[in-house]
Amino acid sequence: MSEERIQSEKMEIFLKGLWKDNPVFVMLLGMCPVLAVTNSVINAVVMGVATLAVLTLSNLLISSLRKLIPGQVRIATYILIIATFVTVADYAIKAASLEVHKALGAFISLIVVNCIILGRAEAFASKNSIGKSVLDGLGMGLGFTLALLLLGSVREILGNGSFAGIDLFGPNFQPLTLMILPGGAFFVLGSYLLLFNWFKHRKEKEQRELEAVTFYTGEATR
């Protein structure tokens, strides 16, 4: 493989988590934190960054140990590794800010059972090189953080009239309280999915039309 192709392949691995295989909007993975902690921007970002860190580090370790871990015990080993990094993240957040740790509550510990992390370990890190696995973890983690941020900002702006704790509309704002209740998460996620699918649908349609045109012209010139 030429140098250029390797570069573009790496780019591809990194970018697919952001858009094409976005864990939230495309794969619909890890719905528990997506719905539960996106009621404010700060909560959403901290959750996203914690997941990003755990995902990248566990991908790194799993990928470097992939030749040593026997297939029979791989799931148990992956969970052990993931749980370790989650515990580390938990302590780190607690040391950094007690307030944020309290706001997130049990959901930090629940990163362990976030299916994105085990999913990437099993599907990617266990059969790819260390560099690629780290890139994959970063991409997926960033995609996840981005999705949480998108949900969190809509919910906080509409539901509380503020962004990251900064009041936007003054004291007379009538908030759409539903948006910060659990039900609002479903409304916002549903709307985003609608938007994403609409985009995808339109792009596919354009693609098909383009193909049809080339097919037709190809036929004509023959």
């Binding site: 009538q174 759409l176 309280t177 539903l178 948006m179 209740l181 039900g183 609002g184």
Partner: peptide
């Protein structure tokens, strides 16, 4: 139900 959850006071 949407209104009740959104504007409990009104």
């Amino acid at each position: 139900a949407f209104l009740q959850a959104s504007f409990p006071v009104s």
